[in-house]
Design a protein around this nucleic acid. Sequence first.
DNA 1: AGGTTCATGTAACCCGTTACATGATTTC
DNA 2: GAAATCATGTAACGGGTTACATGAACCT
Lengths: 187, 187
Amino acid sequence: MQEISLLAYALLGLLHQQPRSGYDLRKIFANTPMGTFSDSPGAIYPALRRLEKRGLISGRVHPSRGIRRRRLYRPTSSGKRAFKAWQTKAITSDDLVHCADELMLRFSFMDETADSAQAMRFLKTLIKELAAYIPNLRHFLRVQGASMPLSGRLALESGIRSYETLLQWARSALGIYTRRKKTGARK
Amino acid sequence: MQEISLLAYALLGLLHQQPRSGYDLRKIFANTPMGTFSDSPGAIYPALRRLEKRGLISGRVHPSRGIRRRRLYRPTSSGKRAFKAWQTKAITSDDLVHCADELMLRFSFMDETADSAQAMRFLKTLIKELAAYIPNLRHFLRVQGASMPLSGRLALESGIRSYETLLQWARSALGIYTRRKKTGARK
DNA sequence: AGGTTCATGTAACCCGTTACATGATTTC
DNA sequence: GAAATCATGTAACGGGTTACATGAACCT
């Protein structure tokens, strides 16, 4: 069982929304706020091939009307399982430092593949980990700040603020899910 | 003139503060908020070798008292020039999307290698680019939000908030530099 | 007919990951 | 003297970057 790259998970998630071609996916990365991912063909097409070879997606050429030949991919049932497993796996404190992007990607497809209970569980754990981690950073800044140059201190302050913003966001997001659940929630 | 990786710039920046060994650098990445960088020997030592081969740092074994043999590196004058050039180069709007980490790294060593005028110039440009970019994201959310699933909308909102936080931080940081300059500033 | 966009692919290169290896020095 | 830590290395592997290539369909 090989590792799956973050880009590959992004592709897999987007294919959960609807069948798409490599070119469709490239355009998404080129023209939307998902632009942190590479839109280069040298990244996308090999990644799709690998996902197909591992049986997580299946692509077939769409032979329809006048349009250019496009190979449309969709997740297989095994691909759906793998994606959901990745999405709902436990959040570790290490994830905050090394995989903040990955956490947000996992959350951003939550509605496509899981129920709101999963989303809420995710947010609660995230809140817990952030609330535990931020004081460590504040402590480091308090203790080491004096011996750091101004720009370094400010850079650290920026990192802390961004975690604090994330925490505030997670709390408000959790509130939205909670409220939606109380009022007769659909889905 | 080859590309220099972000990790390599982080190493180069840290070596501006004081001569250090590969092990010192690994400990920094393992035990401080700079932990987003890899502390694995397979990343650090080859990176140091490459920097040395390119003439940006020079290392020599420190033969002093009882201590274990340590190869201490320090930047060469050419390395200092390259670092400063990287640090003070123009900020593009693309940097915000693809290299936010890189921007903060560039800033965090500003005091080591440049004067506060450079830091202020950096912050001003950052503020300008952020102020131009954030409305684009807000616009996207307004137009596309309705057709996005809740979790996707929230994830985008989180990204926007984090840019807004960065903008606020940049403004307050610029304020600090400005004030420090007015009152009889040292250095 | 010719240029542009659509759509997919490939190959060389770089570098971070993972895992393993090796000694020297300190510690108990 | 055994174990732990210090300190540096190396090799295989994977995947993203960059650059180039190809052809079909669309537009004028």
